[in-house]
Every structure is written in structure tokens, then in C-alpha cells.
């Protein structure tokens, strides 16, 4: 059924094909065929392109893992004639054994988890209360207070660090010779109990809950307090889970503030431990990259597990929040 361009009218709908002036003189079949070929080629190119970029993106992870299993000679190219190998010639599990012995993983881990849990609980409580007040209760100055809070979002956190440092110092929490673990924890937890962005996020979520539910709860004799915990919090659970995970990730990654306020290395968090640990050979002065990479693998794996289990919440939370921690 080869038909020329001149009488293609009427074919368009049946063949489900779009023709344009450029294609004048061609038959429907050749156009179809050409389109199919272009489609296959462009699909292949797209996949090749995207897979290549994906490989580039995961390359650092791959390199981290294989380097953590190499001997120092292989990493520096000494045993391979200056050539880098893409898979360890001798798999050195002993790197991990060494790191577990040398790197005080458990101390940093405990510090990080304690700080993460308490700062998350505090943040969730203040966020829930504030979001409830802003979304459901009426009071004088509600819009003003909310506007002031939103404006503080523009201020870079780095600006406050300096003054917060003076503040916690005036509380006597960072005396370099007498700081206790509890004071160090307080420094790392209390200033981060409020997140204006999470309040904003949860308020939007609370506002979507229909007012009829509130009135129904009132008729049933529920107080505001009961209504908040029995109705609103369960309904907003996904947002709260997102907030908790992002907060946890933030603590896991925080570096500068703990570095500033912890006067004892044993009080610091996992990132500080990782950066501060010098896996340097005392005799030769060469950094033992194998040990170092084994330590980075140990720090990265928990985050990956978190991501595997809570992918949905993390990606949705990030999509809306757009901030780390």
C-alpha cells in the first residue's frame, strides 16, 4: 500500500503518524521505517550515555571498596609497576581488622547515635507543636510570628555558628579543660532543636487535614492535645519519618560544629573521627590508604543501609526540603 505524499490525507489518523512538509514525496511506509530506526538508535544512544554517566557517578564508591581491599604496595603502584589495578591482586581483609582495632569506631558511633536520637526527638517535638499552633489554632500575631520565622530561613547557618559558639561558651559548656561528655552532647544537641523549614513543611501537611476532623474530635470531647497526638500526628507520619531520617543523616555528616565545640576527641562524632584519624605509618610517614579507605567504607555503609530501607522517605523528603540535615 505504497501511497505517495500527495494523497496521504486520511492516512494520518489511521496510521497514527505525523507528517510534515519536510517529508514530502516519501511514502508512509518509508517514513515509518525511518522513524523506527531513528527511535531504536536514539534509545541505544540514550542508554549508552546514561549508563556511562551512571558508571562515572558510582566510580568513587567502587574505587573506595577496592582500595580498601588493596595492600599499600598495590595502591601506590609499587608492586604492579606503577599501574593501577581495577581489582585487588591480593584481597586484604586484614585492612578491616586493623581499622577495627585502631579506629575507635564504637565511641564515635555511640556519640553520633546519641546526638542523632536526642536532636531528632527534640526537633520533632518542637516542630509538631509549632506546626499545630500555626496550622490549627488562632491567636493574635500568628502571621507575624510565622513571617519572622520564615525570614530566618534566609540567614545562613554559618552566620549563627560564630555567635552560638560564644553563647555555648558563656553557658560554660566548652571549657577546654573541664568539659564533660554531657556538656559536649548538650552543645551538639540543644542549638539544633529547631528547624524552621521542618515547621513550614509540617504546617503545610497539617493544613491539608480537613477542619471537619477537628470539629468532630471536639464534639467527641477530645482536647487539642489529644487531637494533635491521636489524629494529626498519625496522619502526618510520612513527613515526620522524612524529617527524622534527614535529621539523622545531618548528624551523621556534621563536621564543623562538633569539631569546634568538642574539646576532647572522645566526644566527637563519626565524621571528625574519620577525618582526624591519621592512618599514617609512624616509621615511613606514608599514609596507609588501604586502612583509610576501609574506615570510609565503614562510615558509608550505615548510610547506605538507611537509604536502602527508607529510599521512598529520603527521596521525597529531599525533593521537598532540598536541604541536608
Amino acid at each position: 500500500m505504497a501511497k505517495t505524499y500527495n494523497n496521504f490525507q486520511g492516512q494520518v489518523l489511521n496510521q497514527n503518524i505525523t507528517l510534515s512538509i519536510k517529508e514530502a514525496g516519501k511514502t508512509v511506509e518509508t517514513i515509518k521505517k525511518a522513524e523506527k530506526v531513528t527511535k531504536v538508535i536514539s534509545t541505544i544512544i540514550t542508554y549508552a550515555f546514561i549508563v556511562a554517566l551512571a558508571l562515572l557517578v558510582i566510580f568513587p564508591f567502587y574505587w573506595m571498596i577496592i582500595t580498601s581491599l588493596k595492600s599499600l604496595d598495590e595502591i601506590t603502584g609499587m608492586s604492579t609497576g606503577g599501574r593501577q589495578t581495577y581489582f585487588p591482586e591480593i584481597v586484604m581483609w586484614s585492612n578491616y581488622v586493623y581499622v577495627f582495632q585502631k579506629f575507635d569506631f564504637s565511641t564515635y558511633m555511640v556519640n553520633t547515635v546519641v546526638v542523632a536520637i536526642f536532636s531528632t526527638i527534640g526537633t520533632l517535638l518542637t516542630t509538631v507543636f509549632a506546626a499545630f499552633a500555626f496550622s490549627r489554632l488562632r491567636f493574635k500575631g500568628r502571621e507575624t510570628v510565622f513571617a519572622i520565622l520564615l525570614m530566618t530561613m534566609m540567614i545562613p547557618g554559618e552566620m549563627m555558628v560564630l555567635s552560638n559558639y560564644i553563647t555555648v561558651a558563656s553557658f560554660g559548656w566548652i571549657e577546654s579543660d573541664s568539659q564533660t561528655l554531657l556538656q559536649a552532647y548538650a552543645c551538639m544537641i540543644v542549638p539544633f532543636w529547631v528547624s524552621v523549614f521542618y515547621i513550614y513543611l509540617l504546617r503545610q501537611n497539617f493544613k491539608q487535614i480537613p477542619n471537619e476532623l477537628y470539629l468532630a474530635a471536639k464534639v467527641d470531647g477530645k482536647s487539642d492535645w489529644n487531637y494533635l497526638w491521636k489524629v494529626m500526628v498519625p496522619l502526618a507520619a510520612p513527613t515526620l519519618i522524612s524529617i527524622s531520617i534527614l535529621k539523622f543523616m545531618g548528624t551523621w555528616n556534621s563536621y564543623m560544629w562538633p569539631q569546634l565545640v568538642c574539646k576532647n576527641e572522645a566526644y566527637q562524632l563519626i565524621s571528625n573521627g574519620l577525618r582526624g584519624s591519621s592512618f599514617t605509618n609512624a616509621d615511613t610517614g606514608i599514609t596507609e590508604y588501604g586502612y583509610r579507605m576501609a574506615a570510609t567504607v565503614l562510615v558509608t555503609v550505615p548510610l547506605f543501609l538507611l537509604f536502602v530501607f527508607f529510599r521512598k522517605y529520603i527521596m521525597r523528603g529531599v525533593g521537598r526540603a532540598g536541604i541536608k540535615g
Binding site: 507543636f129 499552633a133 488562632r138 552560638n164 540543644v190 529547631v194 524552621v196 487539642d224
Partner: peptide
């Protein structure tokens, strides 16, 4: 219906206190 609910300020108290100490004052 009330335009001035003192209870709301109770709910807001933690945030207002923390924001004043760790956000507005430092600024």
C-alpha cells in the same frame, strides 16, 4: 473562634525560646 488563644503560645513556647536564643540573638 477565639482570636487570642493563650494555649497557642504554650505550643509555640519551645520554638520561640530556642529561636530567640540560637537564631535571633546570634544574628
Amino acid at each position: 473562634a477565639s482570636k487570642n488563644n493563650w494555649k497557642a503560645w504554650l505550643y509555640l513556647a519551645p520554638v520561640v525560646i530556642l529561636v530567640s536564643i540560637f537564631l535571633l540573638y546570634p544574628l
